[in-house]
């Protein structure tokens, strides 16, 4: 078990993002986190939503390509330098971070981070051993 992220192909055309959010709204899917790179022609939208499987299906019906993947979600301690500790720890253990984005949980105000790393299991084990909270469910 873990949190699933949805990767959605977005072409740089007017309204593509709005298409995605409209489909989510129509299917009563809530967006928890969203991130999109600064791209010229096309890019990948990463998002964490309330019902990921349902989201993939709804998108596919409208011809939008998307993929589900397991990602590492952490809740670092709210203190100066905690991210630096985490990145250093991962770096020292040869774990590369492909991308990272953060989101706020409204209910308790905590700031969570989504990490895409080259070895998720190893990173998770390492972080847990060092006292970083891993979020497995939203």
């Amino acid at each position: 078990m873990g949190i699933k992220q949805l990767s959605i192909f977005v072409a740089n055309e007017k309204g593509t993002l709005a298409d995605v959010t409209r489909i989510f709204r129509e299917h009563e899917i809530d967006i928890r986190a969203i991130s999109v790179y600064d791209t010229v022609d096309y890019g990948i939208l990463r998002t964490v939503v309330s019902e990921p499987e349902k989201a993939v299906e709804a998108l596919a019906k409208e011809g939008i390509v998307s993929k589900l993947s397991d990602i590492l979600t952490i809740n670092p301690e709210d203190k100066r330098g905690s991210l630096n500790d985490i990145f250093t720890l991962l770096g020292d253990n040869d774990i590369n971070i492909d991308y990272i984005y953060s989101f706020l949980v409204r209910e308790d105000g905590s700031q969570l981070f989504v990490l895409k790393v080259n070895d998720k299991e190893k990173a998770q084990e390492l972080l847990e051993k060092n006292g970083v909270e891993i979020i497995r469910e939203l």
Partner: peptide, 14 residues
């Protein structure tokens, strides 16, 4: 048209 979702793992793949 991109039809294979497996290319969405990373921007590098795309």
């Amino acid at each position: 048209e991109l039809i294979d979702a497996n290319y969405l793992d990373s921007f590098g793949k795309l």
